[in-house]
Design a protein around this nucleic acid. Structure first.
Lengths: 215, 215
DNA sequence: GTCTATAAAGGGATAGAC
DNA sequence: GTCTATCCCTTTATAGAC
């Protein structure tokens, strides 16, 4: 009855296929796609490797399906945020919080994406990864430019560079963030936003620096 | 017999061994270690795969040597910076500039480290990667704590989290930075420091002064 | 849906000739 | 320092029985 909601972590009760996919995702994320053999996946599932091919065409198809499900869900949320028409600072905040929530909820899929996208894009089959990256870029750059235009963000920044910076810095947290650990996604998002928006410097020290530079 | 000086990019004149290592590093960085076969390396060098074993024990030894050379050089520079006893803000700046310079000068080695460290540490042979990571952490956390103590940095930050944030955000630039491209390592470092230290937000009243002084 | 059995190709590494 | 020749293991994937 319940359609599969979570592309990761939960096997759900939607059948053997999703269960196998979740097992594969965990192994891919932990060891890397290439280092994970179909026998590893079969072993972890308690079956023999040949039996996997009753469910999937190939190992590549499993990766494809994991990433596709994850990206569909994530971009659905991104589009809703942008469509809400909040001001630029609130939009950036919502995008970042949503991204950290994705790291929490779909940890394996994010890890796989981060580790493999560079190599996967060479494959015709994964050309949608390039399209998603372009949409992602346009979306974030648009918000940053709007923020510079309306005075929310500094005008002396290189928008393209800040975009890459934010994209990478948010997702790279998948390397150390552990779902269910002491840090929640919202705690991490809040600290991240505090640094990126307002800076690491003590505001008092900043005024001192400026005062010193004016002398 | 001449000791290899450059861990990356340059074959130098120190012999065939270093030349082969540079070729291997380029392929490892581009395609991933696992996806690069010894036959790929041999092809790129214009020899047959068996001949590689005259120079190296194994593929693993090549990776080991590339990373070891790179880390020795980098940590030599880090230690000098800390030993110089600059104030905390200047120390952070120097560490970050040095790191971006490493991305420029040893691009392949940084890429290999970033892509493979997670999987390599499971191997006894690469336990020095864990030690280096610990030294790196202690070094950066020490500077951050000193900065909070002396009032340079905000006191409402989670130092451990900021350390991870800075570590990851600096190195992840290897994914898009291209040595010899239009952006120099120093330009990127300057923009990075501008964001991390002073924040993305336009600091209202002081904005014009800051913008004018930074241009 | 899983197992048995196996094909077919790829990949790391070695020994000895040149 | 490189080549010839090759071993041996791993891995993806298939066909058909149960």
């Amino acid at each position: 009855m319940t359609p599969p909601r979570n592309p990761d972590e939960t096997a759900g009760k939607s059948g053997r296929r999703d269960e196998l996919l979740a097992i594969a995702a965990g192994l891919f994320a932990e060891r890397g796609v290439r280092a994970t053999t179909v026998r590893d996946i079969a072993d972890a599932a308690g079956i023999l490797s040949g039996s996997l091919y009753h469910h999937f065409d190939s190992k590549e198809s499993m990766v494809d399906e994991i990433l596709h499900q994850f990206l569909d869900e994530l971009f659905g949320k991104y589009r809703k945020i942008v469509a809400a028409g909040l001001d630029s600072r609130a939009t950036i905040e919502a995008l970042i919080v949503t991204s950290y929530e994705a790291i929490d909820a779909a940890h394996s899929a994010v890890a796989i994406y981060q580790d493999e996208v560079k190599h996967l894009v060479a494959n015709e089959r994964f050309s949608y990864l390039v399209e998603r990256n372009t949409e992602f870029r346009d979306l974030w750059v648009g918000v940053l430019e709007a923020g510079v235009a309306d005075g929310s963000f500094r005008s002396d920044i290189d928008v393209e560079l800040v975009f890459r910076f934010m994209r990478d810095t948010v997702w790279v947290a998948v390397r150390w963030y552990r779902p269910g650990g002491s840090l929640t996604a919202h705690t991490v998002a809040a600290q991240y936003l505090a640094i990126v928006l307002d800076g690491l410097s003590d505001p008092a020290a900043l005024s001192k620096t400026i005062a010193a530079q004016q002398n």
